[in-house]
Amino acid sequence: MTVLFAYKLGGLCLFFMGFTALILRSHPLKKIMAVNVMAAGVFLLFIAMACHGRVGVAIDPVPQAMVLTGIVVSVSVTALALVLACRIQETSGGAGSSEGEHPPQGDS
């Protein structure tokens, strides 16, 4: 039981560490990583819940399936966020960059 509690505590810590970084870090890649760390924390909680640590009680496969779903979702969202961050960088560029090489952006 204590081992499982340690894992759950670790999961909570990961969640809050990610949350802090998500708010305090300004670089988009850092923000995306922070979200991933948060997600890992939540998954750790679920998986630690799934194995009860009691003799004779089967491991609950439902949270494991939920975590699998969550991992796939977080990978796809991460990919989208990364492409979005790259696009922002490419289209807007850093401050004071050369504007000439981009086609002029039309209306909305």
Binding site: L29, I47, A48, C51, I71, V72, V75, A85
Partner: peptide, 30 residues
């Protein structure tokens, strides 16, 4: 360790194996 081999496989393949390259190529592009 937490008796979730399915999740471990998915994490190793997706979480570490694919997200890492995703980040790397994004960094490269940035």
């Amino acid at each position: 360790r937490l008796a979730a081999p399915d999740v471990a496989l998915a994490e190793a393949a997706l979480g570490a194996g694919l997200t890492g390259p995703l980040f790397l190529s994004a960094l490269h592009r940035l």
